[in-house]
Amino acid sequence: MNIFRLLGDICHLVAIIVLLLKIWKTRSCAGISGKSQILFALVYTTRYVDLFFTYVSLYNSVMKVIFLASSYATLYLIYVKFKATYDFNHDTFRIEFLLIPCVILSLLITHDYSPVELLWTFSIYLEAVAILPQLFMVSKTGEAETITSHYLFALGAYRALYIVNWIYRYYTESFIDGIAVVAGIIQTILYADFFYLYITKVLKGKDFKLPA
């Protein structure tokens, strides 16, 4: 464990908690893409299948449980409890256009063809694009609630910090996982224009609005 990965995991946890609290407190999931949340739940489910038979550390197991539980709780809030506030008119990204390429790519480029490894590789590729429905929804509505922009910033920052963690591990442990690094860089790049808008607008107290 290193400080970059710890900060990354904390950002990730903050993002998930912020989203849960936003929906719970405002009793509304307006502006939130349920499709992205479905993809995230799928990412954690396929990545953490080893939760029950590979023990890495207490921290690792606890965080996996938290990520799994919170992602399904978020789905419950969106599609069951506050279903009436779900903005399905704007959450229209075709996630099959993400799922199918990820399945194909994980069969073409993977470290190993064991089921657990294939699921892990699929989850890495899927996580890289899981935010697209949410970013697409924000671009369609042209704006996002400030709390939603904080959620997106924390979520983007988590994988950016993981890139620093991989650089650190490369030089200190000569550890490198090309699949995770390439997918992580793509994932972070997808947030780039959002980061720019967030820093130039939200941090100056303005609303998060895309330039018309």
Binding site: D112, S114, D177, G178
Partner: peptide
């Protein structure tokens, strides 16, 4: 392809 290694990252 690379040898397997323990996935210690989240």
């Amino acid at each position: 392809l690379k040898p397997k290694f323990i996935k210690d990252e989240l």
